[in-house]
Structure formats: C-alpha cells, structure tokens
Simulated scan of single mutants.
Amino acid sequence: MKAAVVHGKNDIRIEEVPRPSAAQGEIVIKVRACGICATDVKTLLGQGLPKKLPAILGHEVAGEIAEIGQGVQGFTVGQRVALYPIAVCGECPYCRRNRHNLCLKEFGLGHGIDGGFAEYVRVPAQIINIGGVVPLPTGLSFEEAAMAEPLSCCLAAAHTGPVGPGYTVAIVGAGPMGLLHTKVARQAGARVIVADLLDERLHLARHMGANLCVNTSREDFVPAIHRLTDGQGADLVIASLGIPEVMQQCLPAVKNGGTFNIFGGPPAGQTMTFDPRWVHYSEIKITGTFASTPLDFHRALSLIARGNVIVKDLISHRFTFDNFLEAVEKVKNREMVRGVLII
C-alpha cells in the first residue's frame, strides 16, 4: 500500500509499505479521507518527532472497515466510520474519570502507531474499547467526518470557560483551528471577536460567523478587545496559536473572573510570566486544552452530521499521494485553510 512515511526532520516520502492486518481485538480501516493538521507539519519541522522512525502521521481519519479481528463485535466489513485517534489504558485515574486524553499510557495515530496518511490504518483495541470507532450517519461525507477530530478539540476548549449567550469569546489566530473555534462559539450563542495579522483570514472569520475582527498588524489586541467590550475584556480568550510571546501579550484581554485558554501547542522550553496578584484579585483562570475526549469526538461528529456546525467551507484543498508533499509546503507557508488527503 502507499503511505506518506516520515524518516526525520523535513524528510517525508511517499512509499510502498506493507498493509497492516487485524490481530485479535483490532480493526483495519481503509482510509478514505485524512485531514492534514498543522501539528503534523510541525512534527516534520522537528518539533517533537516520533520516538520511533520511520513513522506514518495523520490522526484525522475517516474510512471504511476493511478487516475485523477476532473478538471484535458490533461492526461489519464495509461499514463507514470515523476514528478517535487516542489509544488509552482504560484503567488509570484519568481514564476512570473519562479524561482519556490525559491517560498516563496514551498513544495513538501518528504517535506510537502508524496514522492515517496511508491507504490502510490498524486500529488497536485501546481505541475500539472506548468507542473510538464511530459509525457515520448516512449522507455524511468522509472528508466532513475527518473534521470531527479537530472540531472535538475546539469543543474541549469551549468547556474551559463560559461560552454561550451573553458571553464574549476572543480568539487569537484565524487559522483553521481559530475558524473552528469561531464556529463553536457562535453555535453556542456567544459573541465572537477574532484577531489575526492577515486580512484574508479575517475575511474568512467574518464569513464563518465572527461578530467582530481585529487586524493586529494595525491595532494592538488588548486595547482593541477592551474597546469592543466597554472596557471589561472577554469572558474567554482562546490562544489558538502556539507562540508564548503572543499569548503573554494577550493575557490582559481577559475580564475579571474570565478564562485564558492556551490551545495552540507551544514549543518546548519556552515560558510566560504574569502578575500573580492580577490572577488572584481578578480571579483569572489560566488553563490549557490538549486534544479531546471520546465524548467530545462523538458530539463533534453529531454536530457536523446535523448541520449545526458546517465544516465544508473549511476544506480549501484536496490532495492525493501524487501531490501530498505540496500540501506540506502549503501548510508551512500558510497558503491554505484546511487540506484533506483523499484516498
């Protein structure tokens, strides 16, 4: 089978690799669509390469069941499904509290096992057993289903602060995840302010529901947020980009009693500073969001299937193995919104 195989920093090749087989308790999926996440590209740039190389990345997967291992019940060959990408132990304190994304032994597609940038992907029992293989409703396309994973991450972030009617959510960064945050907050009824350096990204944010936009190449973020909120600040600020320096500059945009969510994954070893008196006396919550839970994933897929959150307009480019390396360059250069590998 064909696969996009990572051999090291900036070294990815389309190769023929053996097709996986389903051992006991496992399923093999014929991949039909796999979203191309900026995290995958950051990995290629050396920000956390897999411990074991070569490796196959890709964790936003939808496809058809091709093979079912002994002991797996409730599925049929040919069934259309989407995959929650995190495999967990099911026994640690986090798993027992349904915080599966924080499992002490977690691994998953693209980190620990081969991911979805391939014609077939093997799904271990640790994903199947937590409901991570989710049947697709009739009429839902594979490429839309592949957007359930990133949407689920945005739903997880929305849980960290007040998102709903009467609240203001400020989103720093109008990349694909910032646009998904916009959709989530608007679907919940919140007022949404989106900030970015690029007018074309802000145009997309307006199209996708942002109430107000701020171009931070022309206006500083914090004064703009205070101007647009009668001097109070936002109830929830989501830093959708992983740049600690920018995050620190944006902290004062949070209102008293509000929440600052670090969503974008920052590079290792960098730090932020803040005044603990401000956090204490203003009752500021500073939190982070990593990935999502299976419950978030199921909810995301349902929102897409029901049309409550539209994701088709996020998919700006479609690729095959023949031009997949072009996709990597476009993500690096911010030349597309969201790309999907179609197989």
Score class of each variant (00 low, 15 high):
I343Q: 08
A33S: 15
D199N: 10
R318E: 10
Q187C: 07
Q232I: 12
T293M: 12
Q126F: 04
I304W: 11
I113R: 01
V192A: 00
E245S: 14
A62G: 06
C103A: 10
A158R: 03
Q248A: 02
S217T: 11
N129K: 13
F117Y: 15
T182L: 08
G63F: 11
L53T: 12
I343N: 09
G25I: 05
I262N: 08
P266K: 14
Q47V: 00
T168I: 11
Q70C: 14
I343S: 10
V28A: 06
F319Q: 07
N308W: 14
A224L: 04
V340T: 14
A82G: 08
G132F: 12
L53G: 11
C37A: 02
E149M: 09
F142A: 04
L45K: 12
K285Y: 00
F260T: 04
V17C: 00
A62R: 01
T39P: 06
R277V: 13
G71S: 06
L49Y: 05
C95I: 11
K285Q: 06
A156W: 03
Q187G: 01
H280K: 08
R201K: 13
D196I: 04
L180A: 08
D235E: 14
F107M: 06
L102C: 14
G74I: 10
V121N: 08
F274I: 07
F321C: 03
I193L: 04
V134I: 08
G257L: 03
V77C: 03
V72P: 04
T138W: 10
V328P: 05
V194G: 02
T168Y: 09
V61L: 12
K330G: 09
V246E: 12
D322C: 00
Q126A: 15
R201A: 13
D313Y: 02
I56P: 00
A23L: 14
E91N: 15
Q24N: 11
E283Q: 07
M272V: 15
T216P: 05
